[in-house]
């Protein structure tokens, strides 16, 4: 693990690795999505949810990714804050907009499922509210970085905020166990095995892998952009001397 991190700390090695890994993850995401969508739209209607069950194939992966990306953001912020790794800071900055989009999609698609199934676009349920808080942490992280002119100070302040936001991650995950929520409890990772039928579970897992690969590709591309941005700033500073 330490060796893998040390390998990626080096910007030259990271740029060489990401040059082939990003398109590979992108192609994998598209291939998995093609199979996942095909299986999703050939699956039968659910006996209770009807055709709205197909929203689950994109809602659940978006929600999982919203949470997973925040853990990546928190981990990168920790490495940046404690070990002063510039690449870790670039990774944290690059993760935030991606995580915000996944979380916004989880909220929007959840709302579009909730209206026909629960009869409401939104309820102040523990799961929904904690995911909204997660989304606000993403927005606050990006706003804080943008608000502070000194990039190093902005990065430190935002990293501290990201670490504080990690407290919300177990709250989102366990909210359906800790409180009596309208949102259904754990289904795929339920104790004693998945409670979802295989015909729904397979497209759900394929779409989740597709979203995960898409995140891998987008994250690498955005970190590359960050590295170039910093190189441009360094060259500009040399020219200004």
């Amino acid at each position: 693990m330490t060796q893998a991190l040390a390998f990626l700390y080096n910007p030259h090695r990271f740029m060489a690795f990401s040059a082939w890994a990003a398109p590979l993850f992108g192609a994998l995401a598209l291939a998995l999505a093609a199979v996942g969508l095909w299986l999703g739209f050939t699956a039968p209607e659910d006996y209770q949810q009807g055709d709205t069950v197909r929203i689950m194939f994109i809602h659940v992966p978006a929600a999982w990714l919203g949470l997973f990306v925040y853990v990546c953001l928190g981990g990168a912020s920790f490495l940046s804050l404690v070990f002063r790794q510039a690449l870790a800071d670039a990774a944290a900055r690059a993760a935030a907009p991606i995580g915000a989009v996944f979380t916004a999609l989880a909220l929007a698609t959840g709302s579009l499922w909730g209206k026909p199934m629960w009869g409401a676009w939104w309820v102040w349920d523990a799961r929904l509210t904690s995911v909204l808080v997660l989304f606000l942490f993403y927005l606050a992280y990006m706003a804080l970085r943008a608000a502070i002119d000194d990039e190093a100070k902005g990065a430190r302040a935002a990293a501290i905020l990201a670490l504080v936001g990690l407290i919300n991650v177990p709250v989102v995950h366990w909210s359906v166990e800790w409180w009596n929520t309208l949102h259904q409890g754990r289904t795929v990772f339920a104790a004693g095995g998945s409670r979802a039928a295989t015909v729904f579970l397979v497209p759900l897992l394929l779409m989740s892998l597709s979203y995960m690969s898409a995140f891998g590709a987008l994250w690498l591309v955005r970190i590359r952009g960050e590295v170039w941005r910093r190189r441009a700033a360094a060259a500009e500073a040399r020219l200004a001397r």
Partner: peptide
Amino acid sequence: YVWMSYGLS
């Protein structure tokens, strides 16, 4: 609801 979810995503 279904097409709006897929379209937005």
